[in-house]
Each structure stands twice: as structure tokens, then as C-alpha cells.
Amino acid sequence: MGLEGCGCEVNNPIIFCDFDGTVTKKDNIVSIMKQFAPPEWEMWKDQVLSRSVSIQEGVGNMFRLLPTSRKQEITKFVLENSEIREGFSEFVQYTKKQQIPLYIVSGGMDFFVRPILAPFDSIAGVFCNQADFLGETIQIQWPHPCDQTCTNQNCGCCKPAIIRQLSNAKTHAIVIGDSVTDLEAAKISHTVIARDYLAEKCGELSIPFQPFDTFYDCIDILEKLQISSQTKGVGK
């Protein structure tokens, strides 16, 4: 752990990148709630950030405040208002050229995560939650639950479990993120590239990290890792 920016050779890198607030400039769930939810959504948001309730409970209860009758309006709003962070397209091309597997691991919802990522066809895989619009209010399904090793439990989309699923003892896990959903993943990764809440928490917990603002910064950080050309892309 803590090898980021050290100038040492890195073998078998694999990238686990957050979506909301990382690939996109803003957190899409927060944007949706500000636009469509009653005021009590903020209580759940604050409890998630303070870690007094689980991500699964808090986010699930936020979406239950939204009627499914507004599905088209909500979907149109989020797809039209999402902005991709600068350099992401170049970052995806860089990982493809360097043969580094890039996985998007998101606490967001399929109805906006997948359409926004559709143009980027070289991404190795996308993990996110699923929104059910069949009832009166939006219900969230959690297809990527915590494994037996997860100490957090009820992560929603459990990023540490996905990292363990796709990595092995020979891989170098790189986490890129910004929020509370990335904190447990950062604790078990080798390199952390962080901004906003995640950067603050890494600082508080003495988790080594590299700060970023754009994905051009992420490319620069990966360049400094001196990734081995003989072994990159292995390790799934």
C-alpha cells in the first residue's frame, strides 16, 4: 500500500474508478434529489456522510421519496445536465493504449450511469446499482452486495468486494474517487487518486493519496507509476 507517486515500477495495474463526482463533475444523485425530492432527502444524505446509516439504507430511502411517475422527467434531467470531467475521454484512451483494465465502480444507478458511459466502449466493465420503477416510488436493487470480508456491510454497490473479485495477489489496485462510497475501497487499494470528501478522509486517516482535479492529472499520476510494459493488463 502507499506506492503512489513513488517512481517505482508497478506490475499488473487495474483501475477502479468511481462515477458520480469523479467521471462526472457533479454527483448525479445529489442533483436529482435537489431537483425532485422533498426536503427530507437531506437528512438521509447527512446521515450517509456522517456514516450513521449505511449507504444502502440512506440512498435507498432517498430514492423512495421519488414517484416513479416522474421517471422520464428524472432521466431526461440527469442525462441532459451531467457533465463529464475534463480529460476523461483521453484517460480512457490512455488506459486502452497502455492495456490497463479500467472498471467503473459506481454507487449510482443504471438508468443514468450506463447511457452516459455508452460512448466509451473500451471500458472493461461497469458495476452500479439498479433502479426499479415498477411500484409507486423508486426502489433500488443492489446486485453487487458486500462479501464476507467486508467490514462495512450494506455498502450498496460494495467496491471492496468488487476489487477483491477482480484482483489477486499479483495485481496493483488503483482507486480513483471522491466520496464516502470510495473510502472503504481506498483502504484496501495500493494507489489512491482522490478529490473532495475522499481526499479529506484519506488525510484524516493517514491513507496515502494523490490529489486530482481532471483526468489529465490522473494520466500524469499513472505515468509517474512507471507501469511495467511487460506485465500490464494482466490480473483479472
Rank of each mutant, 00 (worst) to 15 (best):
E4P: 11
E4G: 15
G5E: 00
G7Q: 05
I14F: 02
I14R: 09
D18K: 04
F19W: 04
S31C: 10
S31F: 03
I32D: 00
K34T: 11
K34E: 15
W41K: 08
K45P: 00
Q47D: 11
L49Y: 08
V53L: 06
I55T: 03
G60T: 02
L66M: 00
S69R: 14
E73Q: 10
I74M: 13
T75K: 05
T75Y: 01
S82K: 01
F88K: 03
S89R: 14
V92S: 08
V92Q: 09
Y94G: 07
K96N: 09
K97C: 07
Q99I: 01
P101E: 02
S106D: 06
M109N: 04
D110T: 06
F112M: 05
F112N: 05
R114F: 06
L117E: 03
P119Q: 03
F120P: 09
D121S: 14
S122C: 10
A124L: 01
A124I: 02
G125C: 04
V126T: 06
C128T: 01
Q130Y: 12
A131G: 05
T137W: 00
I138A: 00
I140Q: 06
C146S: 08
N154R: 12
C157E: 01
P160C: 01
A161E: 05
A161S: 14
T171Y: 01
G177W: 04
V180D: 07
S189Q: 05
S189W: 08
I193E: 06
I193H: 09
L198N: 04
K201N: 11
K201E: 15
E204M: 15
P208A: 01
Q210H: 14
Q210I: 14
T214F: 10
I219L: 08
I221K: 07
I221L: 13
K224W: 02
L225S: 15
S228N: 15
S229F: 10
K232H: 12
G233I: 02
G235T: 00
K236N: 14
